[in-house]
Design a binder for these strands. Sequence first.
DNA 1: AAATTTAACTACATATTATGTAGTAAGCTA
DNA 2: TAGCTTACTACATAATATGTAGTTAAATTT
Lengths: 110, 110
Amino acid sequence: MALPIPGTPVRGSKSGKPIMALLDLLGRTWALGIIWQLRQGTLSFSELQACCENISPTLLTTRLKELQQTKLIEKNLQGYQLTSIGLGLFEVISPLGQWAKQWQLSFEQP
Amino acid sequence: MALPIPGTPVRGSKSGKPIMALLDLLGRTWALGIIWQLRQGTLSFSELQACCENISPTLLTTRLKELQQTKLIEKNLQGYQLTSIGLGLFEVISPLGQWAKQWQLSFEQP
DNA sequence: AAATTTAACTACATATTATGTAGTAAGCTA
DNA sequence: TAGCTTACTACATAATATGTAGTTAAATTT
């Protein structure tokens, strides 16, 4: 699938509205999970693979490339880390952790 | 794929950490897009289909069921709307709209 | 009331993505 | 140099998504 670069046509928006590009990118399997796992620093390819419940190396390679090309992560000598842009994204989505705990309660106390 | 209910094993976490269930759910094609489109009220099946760049009816049906079962959306006479839980989720992710605009700038001014 | 239209789906064949195993390449380690 | 380890790539199989063509039921028109 074509990379969802904001400003270009993506799934969900021929106009390339940046939010649509973002939702396309984050909606791809494991993309959010990878960003979440990198929140505390660098992880190597195999560490990421382990963190992400043994995501297949094929898909991990694909997602890492996409996230690099969209400037959310970058590679360093030790592995992969969030860029400053990616860190900014994580800060936006980090409240999801707390929200998810509340969500869980609605299944336990129906 | 099994529904990602927090507290049960999901892709990414055998322990069923609620954040992992959430990332699994939101990482499915169009799930985030559907939530985003419902932010301003009720949309019918066909309105959603149109909003989501002609998502296939098969997949829209599947996602609507998943999002209902995970309590994020509900059906009413006019169509589908966010539940109060789903609205809470939208409020958490709504800053993505503004963030995406900043993200776009990094592609225009490299 | 019968026929037509419309909205909301479902079925299914095709196409695209993801998985999982195996293998390759490059850089240490002994 | 021979054997590890890490980081991938290749590829066959399996799971998902798409797109077209129905089907069903309710509303509207005639």
